[in-house]
Design a protein around this nucleic acid. Structure first.
Lengths: 340, 340
DNA sequence: CTGTTAGCGCGTTCAA
DNA sequence: TTGAACGCGCTAACAG
């Protein structure tokens, strides 16, 4: 009795199985699945037919072991609940997929998860990493040491020389302050993000810098980038200013939306008549008709495209030096601020 | 001149490097990283010290090749922009991480991406898959044929025997209809999701079934699960009913929020006085004070926990039969419907 | 153009 | 308890 032609599919079809069925050597099969390898049209056809029949596709794990290219990239992302990140993540995976690269996802709840995530990244021999999370200098140094390309998303290396893609926070905030000041606002409040967030620091610095240049007074309250902290921040600022604040700059959209709701539904203020509010990011809900938030929209598509391109470039050519790309955001005038 | 002790770290530290440094065999090193292998305490210490010094960790790729376990699971997810999915994804990756399993992410824009994603899943020898995306019966059959466990999230196999975790749509919708009817609503509108969405079909069926039982008239409009289609759907239903509709059932929260905004800002209706609106999901913005949406909240934490547990169980014991787990949602009375 | 051969890094026998 | 040897599935020389 002959061995059955149908291989045990649970065990996985190998190039050897295909070779046997097509009556060629295993390496011939291998070449068939490689660009620009020399295979006679006739044999190639026979092999592909056999592969098709058996449902064969090269084992990426074995491939990675030998080529030292896993075609895997790590994506580190904190706070998936940040209204902004789902879009970023979807765009990243889509663009990587198009280029035949798979995404290994790590969502970080806290900073303490970073070392653990890195260990796994090393173990899986990822070809590169995109990080939308806070990395210590020491962590960044590991990428260098291991020769794994790294691109930071909306962060910079805090001095370390590392590639990054960012939206220009300072310029965006300056434009937002001008938007408010030009509309006649005079008493400002600022709600920051978490103190350890570099993005928050940049945005707040941009805003306050411009406020000082224009000689406009302001108060600052600390927030946490979430909706609720916008509500809380507004209430605190209103107390600080004895209710005379007429403009509020929030370090992101989520807080701005929380502040608008608190103003309208808790404090009984009209937005924008009594209080003008601006945010940053350009998330979906910001455009909803309840809010029509004045904000700066990050060019997510262009930023993700740049991040992917930069990373793949550095995977191909590890000697490339770090590069920082800064994208201007788009000012959305909105109606949550006077004069919109 | 001796070979330098520091290996070329760019090429990756191997168990062999560690073995040399510790003066043992490669297999001894291997055993050190395996639970319950017999290694003398003294040698183990020497080996671990050497490993530490060299920054060694087992190469997961090579490990996978030989053990036939990649410790990789695929997560298929469509519409990351569905306000509900970011939380689901974050929970899934967190729970998998805790159990030392990595997530290979595939975000699908369209159904046509499915075959392509599946091919990659097979190539990477994932141990299992969680799919929050529409899969044809034929696709599901491939999982069986290859012996790769599959758990569907918020979908069922359309007749195929496959494990799944779902939120009870019918019961939830029935409760929502009761919520509205008990508050005195009499003319109903229903906005569905996309026609090919099984979740939408279930939810709409649950709602209309209950409406018929209670003898309440209703009109139906088709939506697409997004904010905008809630606006559009409401306008259409208002025309159909000559403006006499007083209750609107939306197949998800995003559309409900769009409908509320359209009612208030475009049609000049008061919500809930003139129109009561309910959604489904319990996404973040539904709780914002502008909306306080009446909805059913999916128990995302329990559902993701169940999905992860079911999948890992089936990876350990491939002979387990399919199981369907149905979770009841939590009714949030809200204030977007009368009597809240 | 094709087959043979030698590994990639590791887990797992099997003797010692 | 330890080490030698083998092979997971594949790619990359190298001959023919």
């Amino acid at each position: 009795m002959r061995k059955p032609v149908v291989v045990d599919v649970k065990r996985g079809v190998t190039s050897y199985d295909v070779a046997v069925r097509a009556g060629v050597s295993q390496s011939a099969v291998s070449r068939c699945f490689k660009e620009g390898a020399s295979v006679a049209p006739a044999t190639r056809a026979r092999i592909l037919e056999a592969a098709e029949a058996l449902g064969y596709a090269p084992n990426a794990i074995a491939q990675g072991l030998i080529t030292r290219r896993s075609n895997l990239v790590g994506v580190l992302i904190s706070n998936l609940t940040n209204l902004n990140y789902p879009e970023v993540l979807a765009e990243l995976t889509r663009r990587f997929s198009e280029r035949d690269v798979r995404v290994l996802l790590f969502t970080l709840q806290t900073e303490s998860d970073v070392p653990q995530a890195l260990r796994q990244l090393w173990r899986y021999r990822v070809d590169g990493v995109i990080a939308a999370a806070r990395l210590e200098r020491e962590a960044i140094a590991q990428f260098d040491a291991r020769g794994v390309p790294l691109v930071l998303y909306n962060r910079d290396g805090e001095g370390a020389p590392v590639s990054s893609v960012c939206c220009d926070s300072r310029a965006g905030e300056r434009a937002l302050v001008d938007r408010l000041a030009d509309a006649g606002c005079r008493r400002f409040g600022v709600i920051t993000g978490p103190a350890d967030s570099h993005v928050s620091q940049e945005r707040v610095a941009g805003a306050t810098e411009r406020l000082r240049e224009r000689g406009l007074p302001f108060e600052v309250a600390e927030g946490g980038f979430d909706y609720h902290s916008g509500e809380v921040g507004l209430r605190r600022l209103m107390m600080t200013t004895d209710g005379r604040m007429d403009a509020l700059v929030c370090a992101n959209d989520a807080m701005a939306l929380g502040a608008i709701d608190a103003a309208r539904h808790t404090l009984g203020l009209r937005v924008p008549e009594d209080l003008s509010v601006v945010g940053f990011d350009g998330v979906g809900p910001a455009a909803w008709s309840s809010y029509q938030l004045a904000t700066v929209r990050q060019p997510v598509k262009r930023m993700t495209e740049a991040a992917v391109a930069m990373l793949l470039e550095r995977i191909e050519r590890p000697d490339l030096t770090p590069e920082r790309r800064l994208f201007a955001g788009e000012l959305i005038p909105g109606r949550s601020a006077r004069g919109g």
